[in-house]
């Protein structure tokens, strides 16, 4: 019974996160959703995912949101929504009803004789080994993308790159010529 109650409370938290006027409040409600769902995962037997969700979903992502809000500013959002709120609620309710119709239609019959499942390690590293590779690539691309996005912009070049290089070469040549001519003057 507890997982169902926690899922229901997490839906309320999610609605509060969407409705919150301030971004920081919204981020904290979202962390609450993550924390509640991690308990649900634990109760459903997914212990690894529960830990990861609690540390990444409720921890890392919330810290990132706090960082972004501190940089971008937490303006009280008083913008008119993209579409009217009643229309938005109507479309969302319609969406929920259609999904509920299909969910209720589907017959939930558990597998008659569930196959003996491999251990988590085997599933994670052998059966879904490609997924792990994709995750590694995703993490690298994410880090590189983040570095690219958050890097401070360099001062723009005055001319094209070729002009810049030729100007620098000329400066170097002039410098070398002056260095060569200086000892001759001294000898004279």
């Amino acid at each position: 019974m507890l997982p169902f109650a926690l899922t229901a409370v997490s839906v309320v938290f999610a609605i509060l996160a969407i409705q919150a006027k301030r971004l920081m409040t919204s981020a904290i409600w979202l962390a609450g959703v993550s924390a509640l769902l991690s308990i649900v995962f634990y109760l459903l037997g997914a212990h690894l995912v529960a830990v990861v969700e609690l540390s990444v979903g409720a921890g890392l992502v919330t810290v990132l949101f706090a960082f972004a809000i501190s940089v971008a500013g937490d303006d009280a959002i008083d913008m008119q929504p993209v579409i009217n709120r009643p229309l938005g609620i109507g479309i969302a309710v319609l969406f929920v009803l259609v999904l509920f119709f299909y969910a209720a239609q589907a017959g939930y019959t558990p597998a008659a004789s569930p196959e003996l499942e491999s251990s988590l390690g085997e599933v994670l590293w052998q059966e879904r080994g490609l997924d792990m590779l994709v995750q590694i690539v995703l993490i690298f691309s994410g880090v590189l993308g983040l570095l690219g996005l958050l890097a401070e912009a360099k001062a723009p070049l005055e001319g094209s790159v070729a002009e810049e290089i030729s100007a620098r070469r000329e400066r170097d040549l002039n410098k070398m010529e002056s260095q060569l001519s200086e000892p001759q003057e001294v000898s004279k």
Binding site: T7, A8, S10, V11, A14, I15, A17, I18, V33, I77, M79, Q80, P81, V82, I83, R85, G88, I89, I91, A92, V93, F95, V96, L99
Partner: peptide, 14 residues
């Protein structure tokens, strides 16, 4: 319910 909340958020957020 969660899907509905997220969908509503995508619809109305600017």
């Amino acid at each position: 319910g969660l899907l509905g909340a997220g969908f509503y958020g995508l619809l109305v957020s600017r």
